[in-house]
Design a binder for these strands. Structure first.
Lengths: 257, 257
DNA sequence: CCTTGCCTCCTCATTTTGGAGGATGCGCAG
DNA sequence: CTGCGCATCCTCCAAAATGAGGAGGCAAGG
C-alpha cells in the first residue's frame, strides 16, 4: 500500500491532478506529466506513446531522450524490442525486473546497443487500456548509478497512470463525438454506406453545398445531363427522391435514425 | 504550504484524482467528491451547487443534510444568507472565520435558525470560476464539538477545488460543443438569426427533414400555396434561392462560415 | 474477346420548386 | 379606429429537378 507523501511529493501530486483536468491536448498532457513524473519519481528519462487507431500509427513524446537514438528505435530496435511487448501485457505499473531478469536484460542487444547508449538503466512502464484497446503509455527510466525503483514508486505511477488513461480515453471519446458531428465525414460515411462511385460522390458533395445542377456541372467541368445521370444513380442507390431528402438523410444523426 | 500526507490521505487523494478524470457527469462527480472530501477532511456535511447558465437555476447535491432544512434554504434562508455571497467573492478555498467573526456569526439568524439546526458549525467553501462566470462550489462543514479547519485543510480543499473547477469547465465545454453540433438547435439558431416567424420556422423545419411542399402542407394542415408563401418569406429573409442552399446554410458550422 | 462497371452525353415527359403579384381576416398596439 | 405584422389562400409563369430510357467510350478482368 501507499505510504505517506512528503511535502514535495504532495505538491507535485496536486499539480498533476490539476494538469490532468486542465490540459485537454494529449500531447501537451503527456509532456507536462512527463516533467512532473521525472520530478516526483526522481527519474531521468521519459517517453510516452499513444496509438492512433485510425492509422495504426504511434505518436511519441520524450524528455531527455537523444533524437538520433529515438530514430534508431523507430527504424530498427522497435522490431527487436524484447521488453515493451511484455510491459504491454501488464495492466498496471510494472517494473523492468518484473518482466525480465536483470542478468538476461543486461545481455540483450536491445539494452547494450540502444538503451544503454542513452543511459537508460532502470525502468518502469504503465500501459493504459480502454474497452476497445490500447490507449497509450508512460515509460519512466533512471540513469546509471541510481537505485532501482521501489514498490512505492510503482504505486504512485500506477495511480497516476490510471487517471492518465481515463484522461486519454475522455479526450478520445470527445474527439470521436465531434468527428461524428462533422458534416464532411458524415457525407463520406453516407456515400460509403450507399456504395457511391467516386463521381457520384463528387456530385453529391456539391449538392450538399446547396449548388444547382448547372453549377455542379461547371464545377466538375461536365455537362448538366451527366450531373443528372449521376444524381439519378444516387437516388436509385439510396431509395430517396429529392435533394432535400438526401441532405436530411446525410445530416441525420445515426443515433437518431 | 502543504505538508506531508498520511497513507490514508494519500490513498484518498489518488482516488479523487481518478474520480476527477473518470466521472463525466457533474452531479455524480460532486456526489463522489463529497464522499471523499468528508472522509479526507474529517468533516460531516457536504453541499455543492452548480449554476446552469441557461436557466439561472441551481443544481444542488448534498450529503448528510436534512431534506426539510434544505427546502427551507431554497424558500427562505438563501435570501438572507449572510455568508455565501462573501464566500463567493473568494477565488480560493476560504474558511468561515475569514469572512465573518465567530461572534458575529453565532449571533446571526442564519446560523441559529438554519445551520445549527442541521448541526453545521465549522465550514469552508471553494467556489470555482471560469472565464465567463461562476461554475459551482464545494461546501464542507463540521459538526459541533469538532475542532476548526486548519490551514492544511484549506490547502487541500483548494487544490482539489481547482481541479474540480477545471473538470466542471471541461464538462460544460464539451456539452456546449455537442449542443452546437445538434441539428435541431442549429435550425432554431438559424431561424432566430433570420428573424423567421413561428409559421416560417414550422415550414423550414419540415423542409429540413427533406419533405416536399405537399407533405408539409398536409403535415401542417394548410394549403400548398400557404407553404409556398412562408417559404418565399424565408428565401426573402435569408437571401437564398433554393431548399438545398437553405439546408447547406443551416448545417454549415458557424466556425467554417 | 467479351462482359461488366463506370463515366459521359442525349431526349422527352412530368413534377416540384421559386418568383411575382395580389387578397382576406385576425389580433394587437398606438 | 387604424395601421401593422402575421397567417392564410389565390393565380400565372418560368426555372429546376426528377424519372425513364437510351447510347458511346474506355478500362479492368475473366
Amino acid at each position: 500500500m501507499l505510504t505517506t507523501l512528503s511535502g514535495r511529493e504532495t505538491k507535485l501530486i496536486f499539480a498533476i491532478m490539476q494538469d490532468m483536468t486542465a490540459i485537454q491536448d494529449a500531447r501537451q498532457l503527456r509532456l507536462q506529466l512527463g516533467t512532473r513524473l521525472l520530478d516526483l519519481l526522481e527519474a531521468d528519462y521519459f517517453a510516452s506513446y499513444v496509438w492512433t487507431r485510425t492509422e495504426g500509427d504511434t505518436d511519441g513524446v520524450f524528455l531527455n531522450m537523444d533524437e538520433s537514438n529515438l530514430a534508431a528505435y523507430q527504424h530498427h530496435f522497435q522490431h527487436c524490442d524484447p521488453i515493451t511487448p511484455r510491459f504491454r501485457m501488464c495492466r498496471r505499473a510494472t517494473h523492468l525486473d518484473q518482466i525480465i531478469s536483470r542478468d538476461d536484460f543486461l545481455r540483450t542487444e536491445f539494452y547494450n546497443d540502444f538503451l544503454a547508449r542513452d543511459g537508460l538503466h532502470q525502468g518502469m512502464n504503465f500501459h493504459a487500456y480502454a474497452a476497445n484497446g490500447h490507449l497509450g503509455d508512460l515509460r519512466i527510466w533512471r540513469g546509471a548509478g541510481k537505485e532501482t525503483f521501489q514498490q512505492r514508486d510503482l504505486e504512485m505511477l500506477n495511480a497516476i497512470g490510471t487517471a492518465f488513461g481515463q484522461a486519454l480515453a475522455n479526450m478520445r471519446d470527445n474527439e470521436q463525438k465531434l468527428r461524428e458531428a462533422d458534416p464532411r465525414l458524415r457525407l463520406t460515411a453516407w456515400a460509403a454506406r450507399h456504395q457511391l462511385t467516386s463521381r457520384e460522390q463528387d456530385v453529391l458533395c456539391l449538392v450538399s453545398e446547396g449548388k444547382r445542377d448547372r453549377e455542379i456541372a461547371s464545377d466538375l467541368d461536365i455537362s448538366v445531363t451527366t450531373v443528372r445521370s449521376h444524381l439519378k444513380a444516387v437516388f436509385q442507390k439510396s431509395g430517396l427522391t429529392s435533394r432535400a431528402e438526401l441532405l436530411a438523410s446525410i445530416n441525420a444523426r445515426l443515433s437518431l435514425q
